[in-house]
Design a protein around this nucleic acid. Structure first.
Lengths: 205, 205
DNA sequence: GTCCTGACTTTTTTAACAAAAATATCAAAT
DNA sequence: ATTTGATATTTTTGTTAAAAAAGTCAGGAC
């Protein structure tokens, strides 16, 4: 039974990998269950034996990505020189994550409305984890006496994350005001975010 | 001829007012040229005598709103106690503007893609004016010695505006991640923006 | 000549429907 | 417990027709 479950888990992993590749290269709507099954030389029906439906399969891949992403963050958090370093690591990690998985998120871009509820659970989970990490960093810096005490660190972090979120294409080219930035704009966005960090840390004074 | 133009301008104003009311209450797609003409007891054809088409009529209303909005900003700018007051006035004015004209902007919400180019000219115009005002405020504060010199004030203001833009529904309720916030969230957004101003001005230290 | 309209044409939206493609299920085989 | 071919169901796509709205124009009134 234990071995059987091992086998099952291995197969689930294989399916997840194949799905990830398809979703990453072609996006959600342009990959079919037949294609994923074909990549694995298995029947489409078998996919439904391991995963209830297509969107749950997608969500499973997404949870795996999220898990890896958060693990990467958490590994490094806890020992930073200062608050700026913590913010910087967060922004850089996030940037790399988006760049590396850009096409995967076409599901967000295109479907926009009527997404499965589970997607927001995962998004919320990531966000909460990020908030916790950054709030801890602030707390830690406060205790070390490096920054002035803050009434509500969580609220500050929320504003920080929202502000980061807002920095997506603006400036001279507002016509590109899409919910999701174009790939070629990712670098400019990243640079603006670095500036935001400086302002947050130092303030305008 | 001059009198004739006066008459023409008055009638254009009347059309603009009636259109504004319709767009404000029912949004762009749910108001018809026939209805606007009906409100004014004139023929639809006459509307086309004064305005080339529906979207230009809409844009004319929008330019009027934008003009009033900027006038309100500019009147007060130039004599503020400090940078915080300037940012505060900007955010408050913007908030009132959105609250008072909420439904008017359904055109943005719904059409999203394929909007007329002129809309982005106006949006860009507003943004540039805001940038200029705020950058001047920074410049002025710098010269008074109230804040440390800033390499590129315009870039800072751009980040500020983008960050404000980003603060639209986030937090615990990410499922409402629409491009345009729901009406009931406007107050919460406004409060977060006030916090952002504090952080920008004081910094986390 | 400027302002205005009714009647008209053109374009866009909507609904209904069928065909195709994709998702999802299941009885039976291993 | 796993796997599949066959089949059922749902979603997408394309077509068409009718309705509604946008937009035009010849001509009337002042």
């Amino acid at each position: 039974m234990s071995a059987a479950n091992d086998q099952q888990d291995i197969k689930r992993e294989k399916i997840l990998e194949a799905s990830h590749q398809r979703f990453l290269h072609y996006g959600y709507s342009k990959t079919t269950m037949n294609e994923i099954a074909g990549d694995l030389s298995m029947s489409k029906a078998l996919l439904y034996y391991y995963f209830p439906d297509k969107s749950e399969l997608y969500m499973a891949v997404m949870r795996k990505l999220a898990s890896d992403y958060l693990k990467h963050l958490q590994d490094k958090f806890g020992h930073f020189d200062d608050l700026r370093d913590a913010f910087l690591f967060q922004v850089n990690t996030h940037h790399d994550f988006i760049v590396n998985n850009y096409n995967f998120f076409d599901y967000f871009r295109l479907n926009e409305q009527n997404l499965p509820d589970t997607i927001w659970e995962t998004v919320g989970h990531i966000r909460n984890a990020e908030i916790k990490l950054l709030a801890n960093a602030i707390q830690s810096e406060t205790e070390k006496g490096n920054i002035a005490p803050i009434t509500n660190p969580i609220e500050v972090v929320e504003v920080f994350l929202d502000a980061l979120h807002g920095i997506k294409v603006g400036g001279a080219l507002p016509q590109k005001k899409l919910n999701f930035p174009h790939r070629e704009d990712l670098e400019e966005i990243h640079n603006k975010r670095l500036l935001l960090i400086d302002i947050f840390v130092k303030g305008l004074r």
